[in-house]
Simulated assay, not measured.
Amino acid sequence: MKRVAVVGASLAGVRAAQELRAQGYDGGVVLIGEEAHLPYDRPPLSKGFLAGTTSRAALELLDAGDLASLALDFRLGVRATSLDPASRRVLLSDGSSVHADGVVIATGGRARTLPGFERAHTLRTIDDAVALRAALVPGVRVAIVGAGFIGAEVASTCRSLGLDVVVLEALSAPLAPVLGPELAAVCARLHADHGTDLRCGVAVSSLSESGVHLADGSLVPADVVVVGVGMTPATDWLAGSGLTVGNGVHTNAGLVTDLPQVVAIGDVARYHVSGEGRRHEHWTNASEQAPVAVGNLLAGRTERTYVPSGYVWSDQYTGTLQLAGHPRPDDTVTFVEGGPADPSFVATYQRDGATVGVFALNNAKLFNRLRRQALRRPAAV
C-alpha cells in the first residue's frame, strides 16, 4: 500500500492519519478537507470560541511538530465528489483526483436544516461559529430550535453573554431519548436555573423577520435564530461507488466497508454488530474508532472489531454533564451520590441486574471510578 487517502480533515481524519503513522505505515498520506482551514477541534465552537474566550489557535488539532512528523499531503478547500474503486481514485471538486491504494472515509456530516429556516444559523464549522458570534451583539433576543447538546451549549453561551434566550424543543424534555425522563428533567432544570426560557413539546413552522412562528400560530420574537437539530452524514459523494450507504456509510464491526481497502470512521460511519446498524456523533467515538479501522485497513482484512465506550460530555451553564455506556430511556436510574436536585451527583442506569450506563453532573472523580469499574470494555478483537 503506497498511498492512503483520508477523506475528511476534522478529528476523525486527523486521528486516522496519526494512527497510520503510529502503526508503522510509511507511505504517502493525503488528507482531503472541504474546508480551507487546517484541522481544528469542534467542541469549543459552541462554548469558549463562541463566547470569545477561546482563541482560534487553541482549536488547532496539529501543532508544528505534528505537521512535520506526520508528513501529510494536504488537499484543503476541495470536496471529494466521487470514489472510483476500479481506478482507485478519489475525484475532487477542483477537477483533480487522488490515486490511493486505501481510503479512510471520515467526511462527518452537515448540520441539518429545517424547511423555512434557511436563513437561520447552524453550528457545525468554524465559519458557522464566526458568523454566529458576530450576530450575538448586546441586546439581541436569541431563539434556539432544538435542546440537544449543541442547542443547550449555545443557549448556555448566550446566557453568559447576558442575552435573552428561548429554547424550543419538540420533545417533552431535552435529551429524553438519550438520558431518559428522570435525568432529562435535570437538563431542563439547568436551563431554568440560569434564566433560559425552555419550551418543550412545541413545533416550529417558519421563520420571519419577527422571529419563529410555531405550529399553534404563536410567535416567538427573536433577532437571532439558531437551528440545532442534528446532522446529516456526508455520503452523497459516494453514489455509484458500490458502497452501501443510508444514514451513514455501512461497515462491518471492524469499520470496513463493502470494499476491504475502504474503511469509515467518525460521524459518518454506520457499523453493524449482530445485524444492527449503529452510528455515533461524538468526539470520543471518532478517536476510539481510528486504531481499529486503520489496523484493519493495513491488514487488508477485518482483524479487530470496534467496542464503543459510549462516552459523551457536555458543558452547560455551570454544569459538566458526563455519560458513559449505552443506556435506554426505560432503564432504571439509581443515584449513587447526591440526587437530581443537587448541583453535583452521580447516577447509574440498571438493566436486568447489570449497570449499563453512568451519568454525572459536576462529579468527574466518582464518575470515572464507576465508569472503570462497572463499564469495563473488552479489548478490541
Rank of each mutant, 00 (worst) to 15 (best):
G162A: 08
S241C: 07
A64F: 12
L11T: 02
D193S: 12
D26R: 15
W237D: 02
G310A: 00
A129V: 14
S218F: 05
V14K: 01
E169M: 07
T122A: 10
P177N: 02
V137H: 15
P174V: 01
T235P: 03
A293G: 04
D258S: 14
G217Y: 06
S93N: 11
V78Q: 12
L375R: 00
V142S: 03
V90C: 09
A253W: 00
S156D: 10
A364M: 09
T332Y: 08
A22P: 07
V29G: 11
R42C: 05
P138H: 12
L297E: 09
A100S: 07
G319I: 13
S344F: 03
T257A: 01
A360P: 07
S160C: 08
H121A: 03
L207F: 10
D352C: 10
W313C: 06
G95E: 03
H326G: 02
M1I: 10
Q322R: 15
V7Y: 05
E281H: 00
L161K: 11
Y349R: 06
D315H: 13
A364N: 05
P138E: 11
T81G: 10
L70I: 13
V154S: 07
S55L: 06
V30E: 11
A36K: 10
M231S: 14
V14N: 01
L20N: 06
E303T: 14
L238K: 02
S96Q: 14
V103A: 01
G300L: 01
Q322F: 13
V178C: 01
G246L: 03
A12K: 02
E153C: 01
L259S: 11
L67T: 07
H121V: 14
V346W: 07
D236T: 15
R141C: 04
A341D: 15
V104I: 09
L92Q: 02
G217S: 09
A374W: 11
S287V: 15
P181F: 08
A57I: 06
T251G: 02
G102Q: 09
L175A: 13
R141Q: 12
L92N: 03
L114M: 11
F49G: 12
R141P: 02
A86G: 10
E288G: 00
L163W: 15
L321E: 06
T244K: 08
L91Y: 14
G357M: 00
H213I: 14
A120V: 11
A234T: 11
R79Q: 14
V263W: 13
T302M: 09
V6M: 09
G151E: 13
P115L: 04
S97W: 15
T302K: 04
R119C: 11
P291W: 00
S205I: 12
D223N: 12
A36S: 13
H250A: 12
A111V: 06
W313N: 07
G27R: 12
R141W: 12
D73T: 09
V6G: 04
P260A: 00
V154Y: 04
N296G: 06
E303W: 00
S206I: 12
S287R: 14
S210L: 15
D73Q: 12
A51Y: 10
T257H: 05
F74V: 01
F345E: 01
A286P: 06
F149H: 15
